[in-house]
């Protein structure tokens, strides 16, 4: 059996104790250094970080198999979509009307407005209310996939395969292949307004 060297053990314990104490309460100088280093990191201007001046804040959503994104500047609110009341004598892209805290809003299926047959009839859980001072309606969505940023002046253009009828309403496509809608254009389009007499 090996002999226990008690002194050695005492020494090691003592060292461990001072080390532990020092670790918990660093000296004044050390504190300053650590804080300065942290401050430096925090003070650094975020590189490539999105700011509202250079970047567009977009809300991404899915609608019948299409991936879309909308400039958040045009979004009044996002809310859950309960019951849509269908409205007779309106074009097919008007899905109906909903009640948002006492205000009636129309629900516009942009796929149908663009003339694209949606892939399958999925449950529309959410709605994005888009507006300008002259126009306001709700866009239905299966899910909202999140919020992102995209550089204002370099929105990647659409791939040539997408230059169909709706191209005039689109601004480009993000890296994750979300189609960025030109909401200003859509909201001011006269063709989206239903004004018809009997």
């Amino acid at each position: 059996m090996k002999k226990i060297v008690w002194n050695e053990i005492y020494n090691r314990l003592e060292n461990a104790r001072t080390a532990a104490e020092r670790g918990l309460t660093p000296s004044h100088e050390e504190k300053k250094m650590i804080l300065r280093a942290r401050a430096k990191i925090l003070a650094q201007a975020p590189k490539n970080k999105e700011s509202t001046e250079t970047h567009l804040k977009i809300v991404k959503f899915l609608l019948n198999g299409e991936k879309y994104a909308v400039d958040s500047a045009f979004i009044r609110e996002v809310c859950s979509l309960k019951e849509i009341t269908p409205l007779p004598c309106t074009p097919p892209f008007v899905l109906g009307i909903i009640n948002v805290r006492g205000q009636i809003l129309s629900v516009v299926d942009i796929n149908k407005f663009f003339g694209i047959p949606g892939k399958g009839a999925n449950v529309l859980n959410k709605t994005i209310i888009v507006h300008t001072s002259e126009m306001e309606f709700a866009i239905p969505a299966e899910t909202i996939t999140g919020v992102g940023y995209i550089a204002r002046d370099e929105i990647p253009p659409l791939p040539p395969t997408l230059t169909n009828i709706r191209a005039e309403y689109l601004r480009g496509m993000t890296g994750e292949q979300f189609i960025v809608l030109d909401m200003a254009r859509i909201l001011s389009d006269k063709r989206i307004v239903v004004s018809e007499e009997a």
């Binding site: 009341t85 409205l87 004598c89 009640n99 009636i104 129309s106 239903v194």
Partner: peptide, 22 residues
């Protein structure tokens, strides 16, 4: 009916029932 539907044939507006239904 909201700004997008200023005039719809045969429909003059909408109302909300006690059940919340439009």
């Amino acid at each position: 009916l909201g700004k997008q539907l200023p005039r719809v044939r045969n429909v003059s507006g909408a109302t909300v029932l006690g059940s919340g239904r439009v």
